[in-house]
Design a binder for these strands. Structure first.
Length: 910
RNA sequence: GGACGCUUAGCUCAGUUGGUUAGAGCACCUGCUUCACACGCAGGGGGUCCGCGGUUCGAGUCCGCGAGCGUCCA
């Protein structure tokens, strides 16, 4: 055993142990039929990603779970990987190209994809490297990427399968179009934002009645050239007789458009008349369909107005076009007013620009297994933590819409559909799609590729990540599946993720699992995971989301440098209560580091206190104990240790990680360091108690290190080795956490029967010490160690005191503690073990003493009055449970006795 | 408009099924380089538990109404 340094220096320790773990293959998830599996699949970060505080929280929790599972003897496996992140990655690479004044079109599809792959090989592993710094114990040999060949095969197999089952179709529909990324987006990728915009009141003149106008309100005057009708409610008296007449479009190419009646028009809004622009609004599109109206699309894919918008606007970007449109309308007198207006506008999640409703051909998925997906959560096969998120999940499934799974990107899984050459894709019917002479759908592609053209679109990224829990385990390749242990590790145990992707990812994974895993088997075998733990979102001190653009996110690697990975981990876990958003405060991370230092020093103290005994197992340590020599403190610390391990186990069962960390923190710092270690200093002086005391320290330290290890793996591994708790060449995770009842019964075999009454005794000793210290402090003697305390106590109390005399004197900072029958006029405190006097009679300021005692008496009187009132209440006495009643009575008796004593002391002062 | 969450010490937050005098970390004040740790020890100050009403012997905790903040869905 080498000597431990005075303060904990994490840097080298972390490097050393991480390398050892890797070298030994300690994180490998091995199939072991004899042990319960515990599986976690990482929420794959984007390959473009760098570690954020959100990742730190999320992955620390996963690591805590998986390390705890190993300590519980389960065959634990944490599978890492990254997501190709279609739009995000393509955007990043395009941005790089733009620096060279090039676009992806300058390269063409294949060359561009080569560039992206190059980029991925260069930079795509950064975030996984950073996770290693954090201590993540992933099985790195299993690292997956959603564009790996076998994973791609899973994605395309699923597409083909769902197509054949009739779940996938192609349709020309209104989609959310991002003019920057120039692709369709799913509804989930659109963020509604309240914005204050301008609403324009515009009038359209009746063709048949010059000087008569219909007035509409619009926020988008630049789309007027796309107007094909004005719609009113059929029963709106204001427009009786107008339907069928025509008005002149006030902007764009000259045109006369009809006034139509449609019940979908909201009479309450504005003038009750609505301009109908089917190409640029979803409702308008539907109205247009009903009335067989033409569709005039005035925007290009990039959001620039086209020639159909008229020569005045063509070539203008949409927002510039809007201003220009307003000017033109104003000049012609068609614009009546501009009013400010608050409304919700959909923004593209990635590019953060307003999306355009746009009519395009896309591929759609009718979700499979919707009802089963609801049942899986409703019936508790999958449990959400906190439970309330299941409501959000169910609500979404109740209102589920078909999923637009095609994207007009290059980076992603290209849709495995081939069209016969020469075929007009625009006119393909649903029936044509199912005709193998026209459309080929397969994983392998057509046998005669020269006659076919492949679909240009790729799949939505989420249409690959929804397969994550099983495609990462070899599916659909049977051989790979067997090798990677799908049978053993699926369903996974716990998913740790943020509630922001409950629709994007969680819900979809559940449906995919139910559809593709183990057909025909019971639901609990097909679900992808049993528990979903939703973390909170990390915010800055002002409560804002952490984001790159705000620059308010600290770099986790800086924090690791400053506080160590363990400090960061413990800090982040301790401020992350279940499912609540988190305000990040760096001082909590500092607390994490301080705790590590405390742990370090407590072990250092143990090491300096005496030679190491046989620490190789719980059994060995227990054998070193002499139960007959136990004092109250020995009993109490063991009792607290068992209570803490029960509490920690409960916390894990309930997914209350911060509570688990806090329980260990409190036990170790307060119960062990502040009390037991301090009283040990007296016990270690006595050869009769030394051996047992050291063995108890070893036992407590051992169990504490074990339970802390999932939270702070590096330092605990180091100390475990330093103190000789593990066999040579073994890691802490080769040991097993005994649950509290196992531990208690093992101890019992060794003759250790914990006296639970000792806890109460120690509480009284603590009270005594703390009151006596306060008494010294009140008299400015806190640093004096030569004082004597005189105690008047009952025989029973004095028995307790005298049994602990050496410890009490040391803890109280006193030279002597002596019993007296009677003490006059000295500063005193009334403790649960009698009245303690400060033996400094000459220095007493009787006046000040009286003030102090009177104050205390006053406080006490209040409490007594409260307790008396309760006990005087007939209803309380007759209805409260006996234990509560008894407690109140005992409390009153104690309070009264204390009052009598205080009054006596006051009187003695004259 | 609907759903959910939050409101407790100066700050950030715990508080499990209702039950002694409501806790922690940080911050603050006082003292201490005491033979593990100043990344520490000891002592201390600080709270009408958002408001109103109800249930109950008893409410921070349960119910209702309201206010403020936040998130998601429309």
């Amino acid at each position: 055993m080498s000597e431990i340094t005075k303060s904990y220096e994490p840097g080298d320790v972390e490097k050393k142990w991480y390398a050892s773990w890797l070298a030994a293959g300690a994180f490998a998830g091995r199939v072991d039929a004899g042990r319960d599996p515990y599986t976690i699949v990482i929420p794959p970060p984007n390959v473009t990603g760098v570690l954020t505080m959100g990742h730190v929280l999320n992955n620390t929790l996963q690591d805590v779970l998986i390390r705890r599972a190993r300590l519980e003897g389960r065959s634990a496996m944490w599978l890492p990987g990254t997501d190709h992140a279609g739009i995000a990655t393509q955007t990043v690479v395009e941005r790089e190209l733009r620096k060279q004044k090039k676009t992806r079109h300058d390269f063409g599809r294949e060359k561009f994809l080569e560039k992206v792959w190059e980029w991925r090989h260069e930079k795509g592993g950064i975030i996984l490297e950073q996770l290693r710094r954090l201590g993540a114990s992933c099985d790195w040999d299993r690292t997956q990427f959603t564009m790996d060949p076998h994973y791609s095969r899973a994605v395309l197999t699923v597409f083909v399968d769902l197509f054949r089952k009739g779940h996938i179709y192609r349709g020309k529909r209104m989609v959310n179009w991002c003019p920057v990324s120039q692709t369709a987006l799913s509804d989930e990728e659109v963020i509604m934002k309240p914005v204050s915009s301008t609403i324009y009141r515009v009038r359209y003149e009746r063709v048949d009645a010059p000087g008569v106008f219909v007035e509409v309100k619009t926020t988008r005057p630049e789309t007027i050239p796309g107007d094909v009708a004005i719609a009113v409610h059929p029963e709106d008296p204001r427009y009786a007789g107008w339907v069928g007449k025509k008005v002149r479009r006030p902007l764009g190419p000259v045109a006369e458009i009809p006034i139509i009646a449609d019940a979908a028009v909201d009479r309450e809004f504005g003038t009750g008349a609505l301009k109908i622009t089917p190409a640029h609004d979803k409702t308008d599109f539907e109205i247009g369909l009903r009335h067989k109206l033409p569709v005039i699309d005035v925007l290009r894919a990039d959001g620039v107005l086209n020639e159909l918008a008229g020569s005045d606007l063509a070539g203008m970007e949409r927002f510039a076009g809007r201003k220009r449109a307003a000017e033109i309308l104003k000049a012609s007198g068609a614009l009546l007013a501009e009013e400010s207006h608050a409304n919700n506008v959909g923004y593209s999640e990635r590019a953060d620009v307003p999306i355009e409703p746009r009519l395009t051909w896309q591929w759609w998925l009718r979700y499979p297994r919707v009802e089963e997906a609801k049942a899986a959560v409703r019936d508790g096969h999958i449990r959400f933590h906190p439970e309330r998120w299941s409501k959000v999940y169910l609500h979404w499934l109740e209102n589920i819409q078909d999923w637009c799974i095609s994207r007009q990107l290059w980076w992603g899984h290209r849709i495995p559909v081939w069209y016969r050459k020469g075929l007009d894709r625009e006119s393909l019917t649903e029936q044509d799609l199912r005709d193998p002479t026209k459309v080929h759908v397969s994983f392998e592609g057509p046998a005669d590729p020269e006659n076919w053209t492949q679909e240009d679109d790729v799949l939505d990224t989420w249409a690959s990540s929804w397969l994550w829990p099983f495609a990462t385990l070899g599916w659909p390749d049977r051989e790979a599946q067997a090798k990677q242990g799908l049978d053993h590790f699926y369903p996974t145990t716990t998913l740790v993720t943020g509630p922001d992707i409950i629709f994007f990812w969680v819900a979809r994974m559940i449906m995919a699992g139910l559809e593709f895993m183990r057909p025909g088997e019971p639901i609990e075998r097909r679900i992808p995971f049993r528990h979903v733990y939703f973390t909170g979102i990390i915010r800055d001190a002002q409560g804002r989301k952490m984001s790159k653009s705000l620059g308010n996110s600290p770099d986790p690697l800086d924090l690791i440098g400053k506080y160590g990975a363990d400090g960061l981990r413990l800090g982040i876990v301790s401020i992350a209560p279940q499912g609540q958003d988190i305000r990040f405060q760096e001082d909590r991370i500092e607390s994490g580091k301080n705790f590590c230092n405390k742990l370090w020093n407590a072990c250092r103290f143990r090491q300096m206190s005496g030679p190491a005994g046989d620490n190789s197992s719980v059994d060995a340590i227990l054998s070193r104990l002499e139960p007959a020599r136990f004092d109250a403190d020995d009993h109490a610390i063991l009792d607290r240790m068992l209570a803490t391990s029960r509490e920690v186990a409960r916390c894990f069962a309930e997914f209350e990680f911060s509570a688990a960390a806090q329980a260990l923190y409190g036990f170790f710092w307060n119960d062990f360091c502040d009390w037991y270690v301090e009283v040990s200093k007296a016990k270690l002086q006595d050869p009769a108690t030394k051996g047992t005391c050291l063995a108890i320290q070893d036992l407590v330290l051992r169990q504490t290190l074990l339970q802390l290890h999932p939270f702070i793996p590096f330092i605990t591994e180091e100390l475990w080795a330093q103190l000789g708790y593990g066999a040579p060449g073994k890691f802490i995770e080769d040991a097993r956490i005994e649950d509290s009842s196992q531990l208690a019964s093992v101890a019992q075999v060794k003759g250790v029967v914990i006296d639970r009454a000792a806890v109460a005794t120690v509480e009284r000793l603590k009270q005594f010490v703390s009151q006596v210290r306060a008494l010294k402090a009140d008299h400015n003697l806190a640093s004096r160690r030569d004082v004597t305390f005189l105690v008047t106590a009952t025989d029973a109390d004095w028995t307790v005191i005298s049994a602990n005399l050496a410890k009490l004197a040391r803890m109280a900072g006193a030279a002597k503690v002596e019993r007296r029958e009677k003490v006059d006029a000295a500063p005193a405190v009334v403790t649960p073990l009698g009245t303690a006097y400060l033996d400094l009679a000459s220095a007493v300021d009787a006046g000040a003493e009286k003030v102090r005692l009177s104050k205390e008496l006053e406080q006490l009187a209040k409490h007594i009055a409260g307790t008396e009132a309760r006990l005087a209440n007939e209803a309380f006495v007759s209805k409260a449970p006996p234990a509560v009643l008894e407690g109140a009575r005992r409390q009153l008796a104690d309070q009264q006795a204390k009052r009598t004593e205080l009054e006596r002391l006051l009187k003695a002062l004259g």
